[in-house]
Design a binder for these strands. Structure first.
Lengths: 197, 197
DNA sequence: CGATAATTATAACAACCGTTATGATATTTG
DNA sequence: CAAATATCATAACGGTTGTTATAATTATCG
């Protein structure tokens, strides 16, 4: 008989958390199965038991990364409305806390490696499409409510939202300096102005 | 006696070009010394003769990437003036041609790997600082000429220029869809509007 | 309790890595 | 020409990798 899904999933999450931390700290180069096991405080036996191979493990970590971003975003957006909602959602998942920095660093490692890794690239594009569809839906509601320019091409605007978001995020992570909360607010507010004017 | 610098540099450039192409195609994971040599049509003997070790080779490739971007930018900016110059410079080095896509893909691979690689990270930050200083200087000239808002904090604006630029670039490379020339123009024009209004 | 299965550790494997030494072949220089 | 040096190919090295098989341990259940 197979073990209850709860326990399996719980362990896989623990593995993903350890791998995520390690990847964020040392990049995907340093994330060998032995290193991940060491980070988790066990041996590779655990990893090979819950994951068929390393690719499956990495894909699960990437999924965990995107899930955490989604949850953080959903939680922050609760109770918000209108254009302000778009602003809150973007600010909530930019790398402004240690936890978010960890997630962004791992994400950047994945994106860089995905170019030479078909399975990772597919996963990345799938998540990108999901994310874009979500933003697109938000924009549709705003447009129907008359809060943003009715002439805007929302498919393009959804992509532009992500581009703006990625640009700020990647820079905060990889550049020598970071942005103050006021500066982040300025950057996001500027983007929003283009939707209403 | 040492060989004339011309020949050495010429060979190192050839190696960098082959490595750049390979990294762009298969990522840094696939860029082993043997694979780079194969891409170049020789053996690893050439690589070890012109580079002390792999790190030195990779750093040289990263430098080549940034040099090509600089040259493309400088060439496109020739004869331009005012705010239009900023627009031309950004559009010129966004990944709109196969050559630029190759460069951007390699750049993204480097940035992703740099998080777990001290030497690469230092190089990346050095180039970022150089780039930012260049844009900063352009902004100073525009501000002195009265073409952009005199109240702008140009250090912040230089970083914002790069963030905007990186966002569009990373999305064009890693996202499923790409932007049409008109859409790119729209994105860049939007950014420029924030400098003058 | 005893048996069956899940879990975890350990070890061996072939493949690949960067590095290094060595030898062969051009090329330069005195 | 001959000696010295630059150039390049080849091979061996120790180390690390993902994968896999197997053993030891623990938990589950009839």
């Amino acid at each position: 008989m197979s073990v209850p899904a709860d326990k399996q999933t719980q362990w896989k999450s623990k593995v993903a958390t350890a791998a995520l931390e390690l990847i964020s700290r040392e990049g995907l180069q340093g994330a060998s199965l032995r290193a991940i096991a060491h980070e988790l405080g066990c041996t590779t036996g655990v990893l090979t038991h819950y994951f068929r191979n390393k690719d499956e493990l990495l894909l699960f970590v990437l999924e965990t990364v995107m899930e955490r971003l989604s949850e953080t975003l959903a939680q922050a957006a609760q109770g918000t409305q209108g254009v302000e909602r778009l602003k809150v959602m973007m600010l909530a998942i930019l790398p402004t806390t240690p936890e978010l920095v960890t997630i962004w660093r791992a994400w950047l490692a994945f994106v860089g490696a995905a170019l030479g890794h078909a399975a990772l690239l597919d996963e990345h594009k799938r998540h990108y499409a999901n994310f874009k569809a979500f933003i697109h839906q938000e924009l549709v509601m705003l447009q129907e409510a008359g809060e943003i320019d009715p002439k805007l091409n929302l498919d393009f605007e959804a992509a532009a939202w992500i581009a703006t978001f990625d640009g700020i995020g990647v820079n905060t992570i990889s550049a020598p300096q970071s942005y103050s909360p006021e500066e982040l607010d300025t950057l996001v507010s500027r983007y929003l102005k283009t939707l209403t004017s």
